[in-house]
Simulated scan of single mutants.
Amino acid sequence: MSIKAKEQEIIDEFAIYDDWMDKYEYIIELGKDLPLIQDDLKTEDRLIKGCQSRVWLNAETEDNKMNFTADSDAIITKGIIALLIRVVNDETPADVAKSDFAFIKEIGLQEHLSPTRSNGLVSMVKEMKLNALKAVK
């Protein structure tokens, strides 16, 4: 499934909810399905700078496909990184690097986050793209 198709799937899922409290609940639920980073990979170099909460992100590339795992000490943040990972996992580094993560704007996520969480979201996207750029062959 393409990045655009996965983004559309998320947009459709969020369209079901009218209220942002329900959307937050859904984001928290998504965090429970987050592909978790191994504890021994929760190192300082994998900690995303610019996030209010602690977020670890690991990126691996196999057969020219990216695979991200992550964890956070905040439940909303776990859900947000789970959404991002869902969109770009199993995609080529080149596709991840050029992804615009358009679903974020479509579902209104950034405007419904506190300024510090919004900055954290930007930092997470930036870190994923940087990992992808390093893996581009």
Rank of each mutant, 00 (worst) to 15 (best):
D18A: 10
R117L: 09
R54P: 06
M128S: 05
G50M: 06
A102N: 08
N119D: 14
E29T: 09
E13P: 07
V55E: 03
I85Q: 01
A74M: 11
R46K: 15
A135Y: 05
A59S: 11
D22T: 10
S114R: 02
F14V: 07
S99Q: 03
A5G: 01
Q38M: 13
L83Q: 03
L113E: 00
K98Q: 14
R46E: 08
P35K: 03
E62V: 13
L109W: 01
T69G: 00
V125H: 09
V88A: 06
V55R: 04
Q8F: 00
E62I: 05
A82H: 00
A59G: 11
L34W: 06
L36K: 13
T69D: 04
I80A: 03
M66D: 00
E127V: 10
S72L: 03
F68E: 02
I37F: 05
N119R: 03
M21E: 15
K137V: 11
N131H: 02
E111K: 15
E25M: 15
D100L: 12
L30M: 14
W56A: 09
A135I: 08
W20M: 11
D19E: 11
L30F: 01
E13R: 12
F103M: 12
E44G: 13
D90L: 14
T77R: 05
D12L: 05
E127S: 09
K49M: 14
Y17Q: 05
M66F: 08
L84A: 03
F68H: 07
L57T: 00
Y26F: 14
K6M: 05
F68L: 02
T61S: 06
E62W: 01
A74G: 12
S2Q: 07
M66V: 10
I81L: 05
A70H: 05
D33Q: 15
S2L: 07
I85L: 07
M66L: 04
I37R: 02
I10C: 04
K65P: 04
K49G: 07
Q38V: 06
K105V: 10
K23C: 01
L47I: 13
L133F: 11
A82W: 05
A97C: 01
V87H: 00
E9Y: 05
L84C: 09
R54A: 15
L47F: 09
N67G: 11
F68R: 01
